[in-house]
Simulated assay, not measured.
Amino acid sequence: MPHGDDLDQRFTDVVGQIGPEQQREMSAAAKRGARASRRAMNTEPEPLRREPEWDQPEPPRRRTSAAWWAGAVLSVVILVGWVVVEFRPDLVPFTGVVPEETTAVRGPVKENGASDAAVSDSAEPFKGSPAEKWPTGAAGFVMPPAEAVGGLSKQDVARGLARTRKLLTGAYLDRKMMMGGRPTAFTRQLHPEQRANFRKEGAATWLPIFAPKTAEFASTMIKVKGRTTISEYKEDGRTGARLSTRYLIAYAIQRPGQADSAIRLVAEHEGAVTVFRQDGELVIWADRWGADIAPARCDVDDDYIHPMYADSPADLTVPNGKAADPYELDDTPDDGECQAVEGT
């Protein structure tokens, strides 16, 4: 029985025999199969000991950027079979014009995904942008005062708000996770039954994770702006609170080891967390969860973020609709999969 490198080599040899067109067809078939599987799993639930009702987390809206620091750019978050990607991302036959923005790393890489020369606490990467004046880190995930709603007490809603804030920080401030590390800070906040769905779907379908070797952080500073609103939740006999979340998160990234390639990248998160009681238990459920990313490629289908740098090859996907402002929290999204943005 082959072990270690022998198995890897055999897998690589098999993949190498598959032509680009066949790879695209296989990827598309896997994508359709994954969607069909998710639809089958998302049947209407019954009370207790079966999965509470939830909407499948929508993959982030793809965007294109009409202007970057120096050139046209695109953004993306897309879908691929999660099992292979999670355990052997280096063996996935990517589809699209560029598999990775792979470059030589000039210096040791830290655990948080940045080389010694790159990491800094300076706000300089955000100077001159709207994000310069935003709160830094978790301070930007501001929660409203708790209030009794939908039959829940003020204390119940307060617990829901606290959990929502931890979900947001685990999703968007965990730099190790974004570079491929374990998403523990996020998953420990999910309802136990929802964690099973998370494992089936794969981390990259829920969370902003960079494709291997495409990026490192150029600064430890992450800027955040947004809001959470409380409304009554009433569905299928349940009542409680819906916590609607909308935030912008700005990062400074660069190619591994190349400080001169530094760019700003903005994630636009939109989601909802429902809070209700079921058989006496307080359930806190991530109803919707996802983000739009700019600037990143629209023509690579693997769920990961592929940043679009100033000198990246042109994207093959044509953007839809008019250009949006990535720093505008209330900008109306376009229905297309790849939308133009004015710049980051």
Rank of each mutant, 00 (worst) to 15 (best):
P89E: 04
F141A: 05
A241S: 07
T95R: 09
Q9V: 15
A203L: 07
W206T: 06
T169E: 01
L168N: 10
Y247I: 07
L48I: 07
G71T: 01
M179T: 15
F87H: 15
G240A: 06
A196P: 13
R182N: 08
Q278N: 12
R10I: 04
Q17E: 11
S37G: 03
A252M: 09
W206I: 00
F126Y: 08
P125L: 13
I293P: 02
E201P: 10
F11C: 13
E25M: 13
L190M: 12
G180N: 02
C298F: 02
G137I: 00
E21Y: 08
D330L: 03
S65C: 04
A28Q: 15
M26E: 10
N197K: 12
A215V: 07
M221L: 12
V76D: 15
D287E: 09
R238Y: 07
A139R: 04
A310G: 15
A118D: 08
S75W: 06
L48Q: 14
P145I: 03
E342Q: 11
R288F: 07
D116V: 02
V105L: 03
K322T: 14
A162N: 10
T220C: 08
V300M: 04
R159S: 12
A324Q: 08
D315S: 10
R255E: 10
E111R: 01
G107D: 02
G290V: 05
A204V: 00
T229P: 00
S129K: 15
E124P: 00
H3D: 06
V105Y: 01
G150E: 00
R199T: 14
I293F: 09
S129H: 11
M178K: 04
A215Y: 02
L167M: 12
S244K: 06
L316F: 05
F198W: 09
M221Y: 01
E216F: 01
E337M: 02
G280K: 13
I284H: 04
M179N: 12
K223T: 04
A72V: 03
D121Y: 01
G151L: 06
N112V: 15
E201K: 15
E328Y: 00
P130T: 12
T344K: 10
R62N: 12
M308S: 13
A185I: 05
T332G: 14
A259Q: 06
F11P: 13
V275S: 02
K176D: 11
V119R: 11
D174M: 11
W206G: 04
D301M: 12
V98K: 03
S219P: 03
D302V: 08
P45K: 11
A104H: 05
E193D: 15
A296C: 06
R199C: 15
H269C: 05
V77K: 10
L173K: 00
W289R: 03
E111G: 11
R163S: 11
S153K: 01
S65W: 01
V283T: 13
P183N: 00
G321P: 02
G226V: 03
V275M: 06
R195W: 10
R297H: 04
D116F: 00
A294M: 06
R242M: 13
A272G: 07
L79Y: 05
D334Q: 14
D330P: 05
R24Y: 07
W134F: 04
P108N: 11
N197V: 09
P99A: 13
D121L: 00
K234T: 06
A114E: 14
T239L: 10
I253R: 06
E51G: 08
E193C: 14
